[in-house]
Amino acid sequence: MPFWAQKLEKTNLYAKQISPRGGDLDCELRGDRVIMRGRAVTYLRGQISL
């Protein structure tokens, strides 16, 4: 988000996934944070041991 916000001189971006499953994502740059809005589905769960 920071990269594209700077390139496009915008703090709000909207992305659309063009595929059979589809998807929409709203992103907002607020200082050093990115606020993301959209719908999500869990497709994988796991555990990592270090």
Rank of each mutant, 00 (worst) to 15 (best):
Q47L: 12
Y14W: 05
L25W: 02
Y43V: 13
G38W: 00
V41I: 14
S49F: 02
K16L: 11
Y14S: 14
D24I: 13
N12F: 07
M36N: 06
L50A: 04
G22A: 13
R21Q: 08
L50E: 05
R30M: 09
L50R: 04
R45C: 15
Y14F: 09
A40N: 14
Y14N: 14
V34N: 06
D24L: 12
M1G: 04
V41H: 09
W4E: 10
A40F: 00
I35D: 14
Q17A: 09
W4T: 06
L25E: 05
G38T: 01
P2C: 02
R30Q: 11
R39S: 14
K7R: 14
F3D: 13
K16P: 01
L8P: 03
K10R: 15
I35R: 14
I35N: 09
G46I: 04
N12D: 12
P20H: 05
G46K: 03
R45I: 12
G22N: 06
G38M: 08
A5N: 06
T42V: 12
L44R: 08
L29W: 02
E28P: 00
A15R: 03
G31R: 04
R37T: 13
Q47G: 06
R21G: 02
A5K: 01
P20G: 07
T42D: 08
D26H: 02
K16E: 15
D32E: 10
S19E: 03
D32I: 03
Q17P: 00
I35C: 14
L25S: 06
Q6K: 07
G31C: 04
G23M: 05
V34K: 09
K7D: 08
D32F: 00
G22Y: 02
V41E: 09
P2Y: 15
V41M: 12
Q17R: 13
E9M: 10
Q6I: 03
L29H: 03
L13S: 02
I18N: 07
K10C: 08
Y43R: 02
A40I: 05
I18E: 11
L50F: 07
R37P: 00
Y43P: 00
V41C: 01
P2S: 11
E28F: 15
L44T: 02
G46M: 09
L29P: 04
R21Y: 01
V41L: 10
L50M: 06
C27Q: 03
T42E: 10
T11C: 07
A15I: 06
G31Y: 00
I18V: 13
L50V: 15
N12H: 11
E28M: 14
K10P: 03
T11R: 10
N12A: 08
Y43T: 09
T11H: 04
L25F: 04
C27K: 01
C27P: 00
D26F: 04
L25Q: 05
L8K: 08
K7G: 05
Y14M: 14
I35K: 15
P20L: 02
Y43I: 10
A5H: 07
P20K: 07
I48E: 15
M1C: 09
Q47C: 06
G46E: 08
Q17N: 05
K10H: 10
P20C: 01
M1W: 15
